[in-house]
Amino acid sequence: MLKVKNLTKHFGSKVAVDNIDLTIKRGQLIAFLGHNGAGKSTTINMLTGLLKPDAGSISLEGHQPAENQYTHYLGVVFQDSVLDKQLTVAKNLSIASKLYKDCNKQFCEDLMQKFEINAIKNQKYDSLSGGQRRRVDIVRSLLSQPELLFLDEPSTGLDIQTRKKIWEVLDQLRQEYGLTIILTTHYLEEANQADWVYVMDKGKIVASDTVDNLKAKYAKNSLTLFFKDESLAQSIPLNDNDQMSGKKVIVKITSYQEAMQMISRYQNDIYDFEYVHGTMDDIFIELTGKEIK
């Protein structure tokens, strides 16, 4: 659906996006994961036509960003809203719907129902909570029934209930209409549900794969053993990534079977254990050397 080749953008002497390639298929949920300044938003701005690349090519269903038809495929939720704060929700959405030639009224009403907008439609946008504003922003972005939706850190600052509601509806739209979503996020649980993940650091794509493959390659599971006595804990041979603190030993392992073997080996010396799967955070630290903020 979307093919990007050698995409590059400079701001003065700073390389914001450094020669990246992307291939995105219809119906996928794609996550761009990276810390502030990694190049995620700059990439999105080029893909949406707001920024002109210094080099490289972008093709969406055979169209380039300079063509009018390119934007017909797109819906965009920016970090900062484009809606008028002094107008009501209903008025804002009414104005936005008139920008599209074939806006489906029933589809718009269904969106408002799904995102629970009707109860606040007569309130001024400025009076809404952060979660309410974000739901309205997403409805606005979907009015034209786009095939590709860009979400630039849509959940920043939102409570977990609002994030859950937003993703319930977006997943439903993906199932019903084959909506493709490109997401930049700081929330690892959102990246965790993606079909494909691009990890960005210093303008480069440092990893690109499915969540499961990234975890298998970069995120080791950990087994914590709680020993009955500190001297017993000290008897365990440790590798470079293993840790020991008093009676507690944390060992990095590759499989559940390896964990079971170790638990069996030390079953008479421990009083408890904890097995934890590797996470997206582990992947990010392994690839970039820093935690995501």
Rank of each mutant, 00 (worst) to 15 (best):
M1E: 04
L7D: 06
T8S: 09
F11W: 13
S13D: 15
V15G: 13
D21L: 08
T23H: 11
K25C: 04
L29Q: 04
A31Y: 07
H35D: 15
G39V: 04
K40G: 02
T43N: 05
N45M: 11
L50R: 13
K52G: 02
P53R: 13
P53K: 07
G56Q: 06
S57T: 15
I58N: 08
Q64P: 05
Q64A: 09
S81W: 04
S81K: 07
V82S: 14
L83C: 11
T88L: 02
A96P: 10
C108P: 08
D110W: 12
Q113L: 15
K121N: 15
K121Q: 15
Y125I: 09
Y125H: 09
L128V: 06
R134L: 15
D137H: 02
V139P: 07
R140M: 05
S141V: 10
S141A: 15
L143M: 01
S144F: 07
P146Y: 13
L148G: 04
L148D: 03
L149T: 07
S155M: 04
T156Y: 01
G157Q: 11
L158Q: 11
L158H: 06
D159P: 01
K165A: 11
I166D: 01
V169H: 00
L170D: 04
L179Y: 07
I182W: 04
L183G: 10
Y187V: 07
E189A: 14
E190S: 02
Q193K: 14
K202Y: 05
I205K: 11
A207T: 06
T210A: 07
V211W: 08
V211A: 11
D212W: 05
D212M: 12
K220A: 12
N221I: 10
S222F: 09
F226H: 11
E230C: 08
Q234C: 12
S235C: 03
P237R: 05
L238E: 03
D240I: 10
D242V: 05
D242E: 05
S245A: 15
S245H: 12
G246K: 09
K247S: 13
K248W: 02
K248A: 10
V249R: 02
T254L: 14
Q257L: 12
M260Q: 15
I263C: 02
D269Q: 14
F273C: 01
F273R: 01
H277D: 15
G278P: 08
T279P: 06
T279G: 06
M280G: 02
D281K: 03
I283E: 05
I285N: 05
E291L: 06
